[in-house]
Design a protein around this nucleic acid. Structure first.
Ligand SMILES: NC(=O)c1ccc[n+]([C@@H]2O[C@H](COP(=O)([O-])OP(=O)(O)OC[C@H]3O[C@@H](n4cnc5c(N)ncnc54)[C@H](O)[C@@H]3O)[C@@H](O)[C@H]2O)c1
Ligand SMILES: NC(=O)c1ccc[n+]([C@@H]2O[C@H](COP(=O)([O-])OP(=O)(O)OC[C@H]3O[C@@H](n4cnc5c(N)ncnc54)[C@H](O)[C@@H]3O)[C@@H](O)[C@H]2O)c1
Lengths: 215, 215
DNA sequence: AAGTGTTTGTGCCCACAATTACAAACTGTT
DNA sequence: AACAGTTTGTAATTGTGGGCACAAACACTT
């Protein structure tokens, strides 16, 4: 069956909430409670999950551990994923030092840069390699995901090389509309675009603090 | 008229492409050409723009400069926006050092942290203030946008304080489902969730490089 | 065992976003 | 001035995703 991409995009959200519930020792959760904590309607959650099977129990709800396992399996989170970072600048170093990837099974196993000052230096248990070695290194030892944190001007070139190396998924921090062949998945991280759409709603509004009650 | 949020989300994309075209000296662009460069159908672009007016000319297309001005006006990008950063850690420093915000009219005018080691130090022309001063400082000198780059555990508290200070838009880097009253806009930057949805498509696929033609 | 209260899974309907299709408007050429 | 070629703006159509509502299933109490 063909599952709508929006549904797939919501599943990690459920996964994260469930992981938090499990840590809290919660054994069962209803779509109602999960929904209110996430700002999603209960029916939405139930329908999303129903694409993949029947995981709940009427009158009780969902077993937290079981549903979490199922979602991990569905999303392919029951294994480790190898990633390569390209561009070890300010952002790249923040990414390397970020624990949130590894703790979720995403391991950065290679890092590349063109700057001779950076190449060869160790950053967070990794030696920065020369970007010219990108193709030989990744061809021999493939990765699943490429993280692009280079300036906009070189981003498309980097992406082209990554794809030649068999990378099928790209996390792109550079502000460009990347062109990729079908079968390659790109997710953009675009804080500026996010800001530029919020201002639409801010404009024409009073600037003074409004004491709004918790909705 | 009520404009669909998805439409608003696409406008910054058009803005960026048009800005690039203007730099290149291009004076006119058709929805066809703009669409192919962005991976959006021409009809989609025309319909999106038609919500706001008639900016094109049959037989020619859109005047790049004029359309860019219109979009700036529509999105509220014809002014400067004041932002406050909370959390000057690894990511926060990368954000402070990033030129992409300021060049688009988004100025970070305050930075806060709880760590006594950070407080008082100058980072990129800004003195890091103590997080306890957040409320007094922002109440006296309001900002439009709050950038949250603190650990997940304290993120909701920080967001609550920002809202009390009249902040109506939040750019949230912390991996939590923030709860905000209606009238406050939140955009999440979630690289981990992005990865976790891509793996759904990667799983069950051959790992070997596939020589795919440029689509 | 019966009754009350919960909660899931899903068929159905509705809203709305995307696409199609075309008349109208404009350009450039002969 | 006529004509061929473009391209916009939008009416109409299609498609799809979200919410509603309810039967069925289960828990818990009396
Ligand atoms: N810093 C942020 O908070 C932030 C936020 C959003 C987006 N971005 C984007 O992320 C990218 C990086 O930003 P930054 O602030 O780290 O910039 P930066 O200049 O600090 O780092 C860029 C790094 O990429 C390296 N590089 C350049 N070309 C390369 C190539 N072909 N191969 C490998 N490495 C190469 C440079 O040597 C440099 O080290 C930019 O596209 C920027 O727009 C940054
Ligand atoms: N580093 C990344 O690439 C990255 C990527 C995505 C998301 N994030 C998220 O961004 C946040 C920050 O990540 P980081 O890597 O910079 O962590 P970090 O630990 O380097 O920085 C966090 C900073 O926040 C400060 N802080 C803590 N509580 C505070 C409070 N109440 N008020 C003000 N400041 C406070 C800390 O003193 C510290 O300086 C985290 O939520 C993380 O999950 C980081």
């Amino acid at each position: 069956m063909e599952i709508p991409p929006v549904v797939i995009d919501r599943l990690p959200l459920y996964t994260r909430a469930l992981a938090s519930l499990e840590v809290q020792g919660r054994e069962v959760i209803s779509s109602q409670d999960l929904g209110t904590s996430l700002g999603v309607t209960p029916a939405q959650i139930r329908k999303d999950l129903s694409y993949f099977g029947r995981f709940g129990k009427q009158g009780r709800g969902y077993n937290v551990r079981k549903l979490l396992d199922e979602l991990h399996r569905i999303l392919g989170l029951d294994r480790q994923w190898r990633m390569a970072l390209v561009g070890v600048g300010k952002l790249g170093r923040a990414i390397l030092g970020y624990d949130g990837f590894r703790s979720q099974g995403f391991r950065i196993v290679e890092a590349f840069d063109v700057n001779p000052e950076r190449v060869g230096r160790r950053v967070d248990n990794l030696t920065v390699r020369d970007a010219t070695d990108l193709e030989p290194v990744l061809s021999k030892n493939p990765v699943d995901v490429g993280i692009v944190a280079v300036p906009a001007e070189t981003a498309q070139d980097v992406i082209d090389v990554l794809i030649r190396c068999g990378v099928r998924a790209i996390l792109n921090y550079a502000p460009i509309a990347a062109r990729v062949p079908s079968g390659v998945y790109v997710k953009r991280i675009e804080p500026v675009l996010a800001l530029q759409s919020m201002t639409y709603y801010l404009k024409n509004r009073p600037h003074a603090p409004i004491p709004t009650p918790r909705s």
